[in-house]
């Protein structure tokens, strides 16, 4: 009996505990991300924002959630029921799945996969399915148009995201995310932090903008452009299924911010391995970097107007793709020429 416990049951229980240790903070993070978004935008627009429910409106996210839960679930006429309800689940669970390989501190990771970068890329490239399925299953023009836009947009920007990831991973010489973070610990020229956003600054910017497009965020929120398409692919959703989409989208933002932090901002690493910096635990550094990225997400939303569709395609295919390709070639050439290819 004891053997069964040690060999089979305990590992499973332990994995479940680990998963919960990741999921609970993320879900709370999602809740407060919506709150933060409203508060930050209102501050930028000289408004007050939510301030009624709870102290400073801190309970607002929970009030919203409760409201959504108590509403009626509507299935549109002619909709395809299975696909219709599958779509939000896919969006949500994909955003959660990615966390399986994201290391938040040395050794703090559920699965230290050898091909972690590829796994992340694979998961992020699947995000389009939730949107497309939702758009098709809703049996509504608005939703379908939103889904089509979204599919084209996400597939387009994925290409340059892929190239940028390759650039980063040839610099680090590994596909393992923990090793990728460790590779950024060596200071650059002995003074600057070794984080990759310094040597790869143009790619950092391109990557961040592509992430905005990949998560359907402003200024690339064409798939759910409310002034043209009501709410795009989410038009027909209500209640719990809408809540899942909502959670999924915001969890995706957090996940993508985590990806940016790991690839370019040194993950859990402090800027310098010296006393005032390294007293703060790695997890806090990682969370702070994610928070910073999320702030930029919101900042961008409050600042920029929406792109037109042709502008979006032009940016993706004619600007970002050549840029990232050239940068990849440059990086590879640099590494080979100066004999700096990581073994």
């Amino acid at each position: 009996m004891a053997e069964l416990w040690i060999n089979y049951i305990w590992p499973v229980v332990w994995i479940v505990i680990q998963i919960l240790m990741f999921l609970v903070p993320i879900l709370i993070g999602v809740a407060y991300l919506t709150y933060a978004e409203r508060k930050i935008i209102s501050a930028m627009q000289m408004r007050i924002g939510p301030n009624v429910v709870g102290w400073f409106g801190l309970l607002q996210p929970f009030a919203d959630a409760l409201k959504l839960l108590t509403k009626e679930t509507v299935l549109p006429t002619g909709a395809s029921p299975v696909v219709f309800f599958l779509a939000p689940m896919i969006t949500f669970s994909l955003a959660m799945l990615a966390w399986a390989v994201i290391p938040v501190n040395p050794g703090w990771v559920i699965s230290d996969l050898n091909v972690g970068v590829l796994y992340l890329f694979a998961i992020s490239s699947l995000g389009v399915y939730g949107v497309v399925m939702a758009g098709w299953a809703s049996n509504s023009r608005y939703a379908f148009l939103g889904a089509m836009r979204s599919a084209a947009q996400m597939v387009s920007y994925e290409v340059s995201i892929g190239f940028i990831m390759i650039t980063v991973l040839i610099t680090a010489g590994t596909l393992n995310l923990s090793a990728l973070v460790e590779a950024q610990s060596e200071p650059l020229f002995g003074v600057l932090p070794g984080w990759y956003f310094i040597p790869h600054l143009p790619m950092f910017i391109v990557f961040f903008i592509s992430v905005l497009a990949e998560t359907n965020r402003h200024p690339f929120d064409l798939p759910e452009a409310e002034s043209e398409l009501v709410a795009g692919f989410m038009t027909e959703y209500s209640s719990m299924s809408f809540a899942l989409f909502f959670l999924g989208e915001y969890a995706n933002m957090i996940m993508m911010s985590g990806m940016v932090s790991i690839l370019f901002l040194g993950g859990w690493l402090p800027p310098y391995d010296a006393t005032p910096w390294n007293l703060i635990p790695g997890v806090i550094w990682f969370a702070a970097k994610i928070a910073f990225c999320l702030f930029v997400f919101i900042w961008v939303r409050a600042t920029f107007p929406r792109y037109r569709y042709d502008q979006l395609m032009r940016l993706g295919w004619k600007v970002f793709l050549p840029l990232s390709l050239i940068w990849l070639a440059l990086t590879a050439g640099f590494l080979v020429y100066f004999d700096k290819v990581p073994a």
């Binding site: 399915y129 599919a151 597939v155």
Partner: peptide, 17 residues
């Protein structure tokens, strides 16, 4: 991973499209 990225993430999306 390449199977998922290429077939599921790109080819099948266009197919579905």
């Amino acid at each position: 991973m390449i199977l998922v990225i290429v077939y599921v993430g790109a080819v099948a999306v266009l197919f579905l499209f």
